[in-house]
Simulated assay, not measured.
Amino acid sequence: MTEEAFWLLITRAAEQPCDREEQAEWLTEELTRLPVDQIVAFQIKLSEVRLRADTWPMWAAARVIQDGFCSDDSFWYFQLWLLTLGRATFARVVADPDTLAETDAVRALASRPMKTWSDQDWPDWESLDYAAHEAYQDATGREAGLEQALLETGHDLPVNPDPAAITWDVAEPDAVAEHLPKLTFLFSAKVA
Rank of each mutant, 00 (worst) to 15 (best):
E4K: 06
A5K: 04
A5Q: 12
W7G: 08
L8Y: 01
L9M: 12
T11C: 01
R12V: 13
R12Q: 13
A13L: 08
E15I: 09
E15Q: 14
Q16Y: 13
C18I: 11
E22N: 13
Q23M: 11
A24H: 01
E25G: 01
E25A: 06
T28D: 03
E29C: 03
E29L: 05
E30C: 11
E30D: 08
E30Y: 02
L31A: 14
L31I: 13
L31T: 15
R33L: 15
L34Y: 10
V36K: 04
D37Y: 06
Q38T: 02
A41I: 01
Q43L: 00
K45Y: 02
K45E: 04
L46I: 01
L46A: 12
L51M: 12
A53C: 02
D54S: 13
D54A: 11
W56H: 15
A60G: 04
A61C: 13
A62M: 11
Q66C: 13
F69M: 05
C70R: 15
C70E: 14
D73S: 13
F75N: 12
Y77W: 14
Y77K: 09
Y77D: 15
F78D: 08
F78I: 05
L82S: 09
L83D: 03
G86S: 03
R87K: 14
A88G: 04
T89E: 00
T89A: 08
A91R: 02
V93E: 04
V93P: 03
V93K: 01
D96W: 09
P97G: 10
P97D: 05
P97I: 05
T99W: 15
A101Y: 09
A101C: 11
E102W: 03
D104L: 06
V106I: 15
R107S: 07
R107W: 02
R107E: 02
R107I: 13
R107T: 10
A108K: 12
A108Q: 14
L109G: 13
R112T: 14
M114C: 08
K115S: 12
W117Y: 12
Q120W: 10
W122S: 05
P123L: 02
D124A: 14
E126M: 07
E126C: 09
D129T: 08
D129P: 00
H133G: 06
Q137S: 05
D138N: 03
R142L: 03
E143Q: 03
E143W: 05
A144S: 05
A144G: 03
G145I: 07
G145A: 04
L146Y: 05
Q148S: 12
Q148M: 06
T153K: 02
T153G: 04
G154L: 02
H155Y: 12
D156F: 11
V159S: 14
N160A: 13
P161I: 15
P163C: 09
A164L: 15
A165C: 00
A165I: 05
I166A: 07
I166R: 06
T167I: 00
W168L: 04
D169W: 04
D169S: 08
A171N: 14
E172I: 01
D174Y: 03
D174W: 06
V176N: 01
A177I: 08
A177C: 04
A177L: 05
E178W: 00
H179V: 10
H179C: 08
K182M: 14
L183D: 14
L183T: 10
F185D: 11
L186I: 15
F187I: 06
S188Y: 00
A189R: 06
A189Q: 13
K190L: 07
A192S: 12
A192W: 07
